[in-house]
């Protein structure tokens, strides 16, 4: 009798054991190891020379100018990408929300960049953004508009990287929002029309709240993703010019060989920032999100 009950208690744990093993091995262990490394002055060549130094790595992080530079770059990048993507994808989704052959075609077009590797995209944009021979300046010149130095100037480099990231990601989010818009019952809009609601008011009071779960999802996912941006920076600018596009993950990457303990500590800080941001989002916004 008791044996049977023990079996019943254990069974669910047995069932999830394989998945839990995976999580321990590939999620928890690396995180714990990251934390462990961050407390050491770690020597990759000779493990014996590694030294436990407590929170010295963290103290160093917060006293170094280049950390703050990459942090502010990352924040600026994230804000730019998130705000632009949300606004543009919402605009496009509202435009594409009405079902028609043409719209399906446009939607497929917008989605295509998402299928292509960001590395290829970054390379193509790298050429297009070349100040003297590139396509973008050629077009600007053709229309008599002022040209830009794009990636070559520390003033416009970060903005250029933001542009590419938005261009690449937007199709996916448009797709999510179009699906959300199309799932709203048309009779709700008819009721609003009978309630004498203007177009703008209908959008604010009905459309936006109805798609708020999707908008919130995009906000959280994009913030986390943008904070961890790496590939675009690596391919397009290598953090330059003059650290103008150096972001946190790229900063970690730069320090990986010279000082792995310091890099790990930065990784821990990055994790903490993302966790804090997500927590703040949920605290501030989840009440405004309407789940069916």
């Amino acid at each position: 009798m008791d044996k049977q009950r023990l079996g019943e208690t254990l069974r669910p744990y047995l069932m999830i054991a394989p998945a839990m093993a995976g999580i321990f091995l590939f999620v928890l262990y690396p995180v714990v190891f990251l934390g462990y490394l961050s407390l050491y002055d770690y020597n990759l060549m000779n493990k014996a020379k590694s030294k436990f130094i407590g929170f010295d790595n963290f103290a160093e992080i917060f006293s170094r100018e280049d950390f703050y530079k990459s942090l502010s770059n990352t924040v600026f990048y994230t804000a730019g990408v998130v705000i632009l993507t949300l606004l543009l994808s919402l605009l496009l989704a509202v435009w594409l929300g009405k079902k028609s052959k043409f719209n399906v075609f446009v939607q497929a077009g917008i989605f295509t960049p998402h299928v292509v590797s960001i590395v290829s995209i970054a390379l193509v944009w790298l050429w297009m953004m070349e100040p003297n021979l590139g396509f973008l300046n050629y077009v600007l010149k053709a229309f008599g508009l002022p040209t830009s130095e794009w990636l070559q100037s520390s003033k416009s480099a970060l903005m250029s990287v933001i542009l590419v990231s938005v261009w690449q990601g937007i199709g996916y989010y448009v797709l999510i929002l179009v699906a959300a818009l199309q799932s709203i019952s048309p009779s709700i809009y008819e009721a609003a029309a009978l309630d004498n609601a203007s177009k703008l008011r209908t959008f604010w009071k009905i459309t936006l709240p109805m798609i708020s779960p999707q908008l919130f999802f995009i906000l959280v996912i994009m913030t986390i993703g943008s904070f961890k941006v790496f590939d675009t920076v690596k391919v397009m600018t290598g953090g330059g010019p003059n650290n103008a596009t150096n972001t946190l993950v790229y900063y970690i990457y730069e320090n990986r060989t010279t000082n792995i303990g310091y890099a790990s500590a930065t990784g821990v800080v990055l994790m903490a920032i993302i966790a804090l941001l997500t927590f703040v989002y949920f605290r501030l916004l989840s009440r405004k999100v309407h789940y069916q």
């Binding site: 019952s185 009779s187 709700i188 008819e190 009721a191 609003a192 009978l194 009071k205 009905i206 709240p209 109805m210 708020s212 309407h290 069916q292």
Partner: peptide, 12 residues
């Protein structure tokens, strides 16, 4: 108008 499915605004 009262709709068959009521068409109440679910977010309000």
């Amino acid at each position: 108008m009262v709709f068959q499915n009521y068409a109440i605004y679910p977010t309000m």
